[in-house]
Simulated scan of single mutants.
Amino acid sequence: MRIVLVGPPGAGKGTQAALLAERLAVPHISTGDLFRANISQGTPLGKQVRSILDEGGLVPDEITVAMAADRMAQPDAEDGFLLDGFPRNIGQAKALDGLLAEGGHKIDAVLDLEVPEEEVVRRIAGRRTCRKDSSHTFHLEYRKPRVEGVCDVCGGELYQREDDREETVRKRLAIYHAETEPIIDYYREQGLVSTIPALAPVPEVTRRALEALPHRG
């Protein structure tokens, strides 16, 4: 099964993508992971991406599509995959359709994780990260540290990352609405979209997503 997972920043796409991919026994393909892997491995595409990012530019669609195409061509993705962060706009969605059509395939389902905008802001802007170890994260409402401003795990200082600040989150949401949200209508016209209310515990959102997939329930 070939699935696209979409939703605004803070909707829980990464968490749900990993859980769904495991349940469906297909690889979770994240564009963020692809960028990091290609850069760390020094691939030709990775070198292009590093150069662009170092200059503060945006990675062109053709490079993103090329990385995704290479990953989807790997043997473990032969029977399907779950895409997270790709396609990010209409151009990438059309390119993906073309790539799959060449192999006689198509997208089977698009899962749209729906979270109210103010909840997205609350989720992201409330995050606090440990300066000593960025994998240690807390939240002002949902996962408070025992001592304010101090990491429970290692005692490091907790701080708010620049990209977690409210004004930055709202800019990210504006970009999502302008660039990524239109792909939902693009896929809806093909009868592929299921909207998943994602303001619920993680296991419940996973259950809803699985039930929304074709031939499941």
Rank of each mutant, 00 (worst) to 15 (best):
E118Q: 15
A174S: 15
R127W: 00
A125L: 06
D164R: 08
Q160M: 05
G56S: 10
I63Q: 06
T137A: 13
A37N: 13
Q48T: 12
G85M: 03
I124T: 09
L24W: 01
L19V: 11
V193Q: 06
A109Q: 00
I90G: 09
R146T: 12
G12F: 03
R88P: 08
M1E: 01
V121L: 04
R170A: 02
R170D: 01
C151G: 03
Q190T: 10
V4M: 11
R188P: 05
I196P: 11
E62V: 14
V26E: 06
D97K: 09
T64F: 03
P145A: 03
E162D: 15
D163I: 00
D97F: 02
A68V: 15
D163N: 04
V147C: 10
S30K: 04
A77H: 06
D164T: 00
G32D: 06
R50C: 03
A66K: 13
A25L: 14
L192V: 10
L113I: 03
Y187V: 05
L210D: 04
A101Y: 01
L58P: 09
I107T: 12
A174M: 11
V193S: 06
R172T: 07
Y187A: 06
M1W: 01
P214F: 04
V202Q: 13
V59M: 02
E181Y: 10
A93S: 09
Y186W: 12
A198Y: 09
G10D: 00
L158M: 07
L100N: 05
R146C: 09
I39Q: 13
I183V: 14
S40C: 10
P75D: 15
G32P: 04
A93K: 04
I107W: 00
Y187E: 01
H177T: 11
D97E: 15
G10F: 01
E55D: 14
R71P: 00
R128D: 10
V169R: 01
V26K: 02
R146Q: 14
E189V: 14
G14E: 08
L45T: 12
V169M: 01
Q74F: 03
V6D: 00
H215P: 01
P9N: 01
L210W: 03
E211Y: 11
G12C: 00
E167G: 05
I196H: 07
E167S: 13
R50K: 15
L45D: 02
V26C: 07
R146L: 14
R170M: 01
D54K: 01
V6W: 13
A101L: 14
N38S: 13
K13T: 07
R122Y: 08
R161I: 05
Q41H: 13
R172E: 08
M72V: 05
K13P: 08
G14H: 02
A174V: 10
R172K: 10
V121E: 01
E166C: 02
I52F: 13
L173Q: 06
